[in-house]
Design a protein around this nucleic acid. Structure first.
Lengths: 345, 345
DNA sequence: TGAACAATTGGTTGCGCAATCATTTTATGT
DNA sequence: ACATAAAATGATTGCGCAACCAATTGTTCA
């Protein structure tokens, strides 16, 4: 058991273990780092000493000496948004077994905070970075470029990827929803959006593109707020939509399921028949969507995959840094899928 | 702007900046770390050099030299559980402005994984640790004790806190729910639980304690699974409950709102009148609870507070390490609150 | 104007580890 | 048994920074 507090409070080092095991410090280092070239009896002796002293290697010293950090930096814009839970799970599930650590930063949808986080992160010699979207500041992009660290931009399709892009086209997804609603013979289709980050705007753009082509676009039916989304915000915005359009609206695409659930709730209070008189489509396919009454049509997205894929790509880059024979694709499309349930005809 | 890639790819150091600004490295260090005792003109000169070169300090070297890491380790058992989002937000909201980093580990409800994470974490000289619950292995507890790092155990009430405990009594919360249900004249009250970690078990224990005292406890009405909880699992377990009890059950306490939402959904399919014939109470008060139909009675918990309070306590400990005059309370009760809505009489 | 002091700046050193190369030990084959 | 190769182990050094103390510069007041 650990009893490293006995000697004057000084931190235990390789040297202490080496003295105990009667080998050189570097041999201890080799045991700790799992090198093969250590004879079994020596390794056992060292391991015994480590266990007895309760030695814990100093990562800072290790990183400084080897410039290998086993660290992956992850920047996400929000901790409240459930969407990132799944992404994070995907990241951790790949990173942790490979003995990599994840350093997570919340950028609060701010490019300035993001730049600060990148600067901090780059001071720790990360071996890879996973960042959300492509709206980094010029300075941030320059730092990333200069650092030569593998960078994966996730969630959306990015115009000029810094390095690699894992995500899907929100424009296409928005367009697909618009087409679905048109196909189901809705014609006065509105949009409700909150937060309005880049990806949400792209969803809206794709949506408007299709409606416009079908001559069904009326921008007064587009209700958005920069504030974060929630179920209650969905209800609120829906009331606004109905007021502004005087009820002249027969379907709505909500930029996420929370909002849609709020709309659904509110439409029941208004005694609007869903889906007959009014169609609702959400986005993300959170579990509750399937359990709403009526069950919510929505767009399913591979959130977990986005995270795990991003990590895998980083590992590929790390392991074969200069391998030009099998170049890594710089865009990996994780796709999306329309899920039609009972909230649309 | 940054153009640090020009010189032979070698990492920029304090020395490079010092040369450029024509001062000593240590002065640059002082500027970087925001010490007061640097004359304005010198500071500006140095800052200009930093900006021009795009210098980013090496954190490993800094930590090694100063043994100050500005690092807080956080161990949570699950990334899927939404509960931890709010806790994390609370932690980050306090830590980030203070320039502290958060290193997050997912222990997957495993004490062994937790021990591994603690070992890894302690190798990085964290200035504080936030861990979930009190079920650490003996070795883990010993390491923590020996490390002398402030440790906050969050979420539940812990028997022998390693250091500080921030949370509330799940036993009391479970008891309060049981009492509520009894007060509403339900008498055949069941329990549905998933995952069954320590805190869930305590909720159940409190619940059983009250029912037993009221002579209303029937353990066949307690349905649990070690698997993770979800809405669909709630529906599933509810069907099981109804089968096993042959419908002889008029209320249920679900160990979280997801499960309760599933029960609610299923009870509608069974045409059970809620709350007249059947009462449902959840736990956590997630946003959807208020928007369910009927709105879900549940227990509100200060998740965000648990996180922010934990961080605050750590900062107190860091800033006044030996201050024995104003000792920090070793248990901070964040409380809970019964929220009665329409799913109970 | 010049002490006397305070405020600022600099030099040296070591934090704990792994890379590199040198040395010793062991295995292999004849 | 011996040479040779191969494997295991060790000694030295530097990673980039901040602590510590010394040297310098600036400031204040008589």
């Amino acid at each position: 058991m650990a009893n490293n507090d006995s000697h004057s409070g000084k931190r235990l080092t390789l040297k202490d273990v080496a003295a105990k095991a009667d080998v050189s410090p570097i041999t201890v280092s080799r045991v700790v780092n799992g090198y093969d070239g250590v004879r079994a009896n020596v390794r056992e002796k060292v391991e015994a000493a480590i266990a007895e002293l309760g030695y814990i290697p100093n990562r800072s010293a290790s990183v400084l000496a080897s410039s290998k950090s086993k660290l992956i930096g992850v920047l996400i814009p929000s901790l409240s948004n459930v969407v990132f839970n799944d992404v994070l799970r995907g990241i951790y599930d790949i990173a942790t077994p490979a003995n990599y650590q994840v350093l997570l930063f919340n950028t609060h949808y701010s490019a300035a905070e993001e730049e600060r986080a990148i600067r901090t992160l780059l001071g720790q010699s990360p071996e890879g970075l996973i960042i959300t979207g492509g709206e980094q500041t010029t300075a941030a992009k320059a730092m990333l470029q200069a650092s030569a660290v593998p960078v994966v931009q996730i969630m959306g399709e990015v115009d000029n990827p810094i390095d690699i892009n894992v995500g899907f086209s929100h424009f296409d997804a928005g367009a697909a929803v618009a087409q679905l609603l048109l196909d189901k013979s809705y014609s006065k289709i509105g949009f409700i959006g909150a937060r309005m980050d880049r990806r949400t705007c792209e969803r809206l753009a794709g949506f408007e593109h299709v409606l416009s082509a079908a001559n069904s676009l009326d921008k007064t039916r587009v209700i958005t707020t920069p504030e974060p989304s929630s179920v209650s915000k969905g209800a609120l915005l829906f009331r606004e939509l109905m007021t502004i359009t005087k009820g002249d609206c027969d379907a709505v695409f909500c930029c996420n399921d929370d909002l849609a659930l709020g709309v659904l709730h509110e439409s029941k209070k208004m005694q609007l028949k869903v889906p007959e008189k009014f169609g609702i489509c959400g986005f993300n396919d959170i579990e509750m969507a399937a359990y709403a009454e009526p069950a919510l049509s929505t767009v399913r997205v591979n959130r977990y995959n986005m995270g795990s894929k991003a990590m895998e790509v980083i590992f590929e880059k790390i392991t074969s840094p200069g391998d030009k024979t099998t170049p890594i694709a710089n865009y990996i499309n994780t796709g999306f899928e329309l899920v039609t349930r009972k909230s649309t005809r």
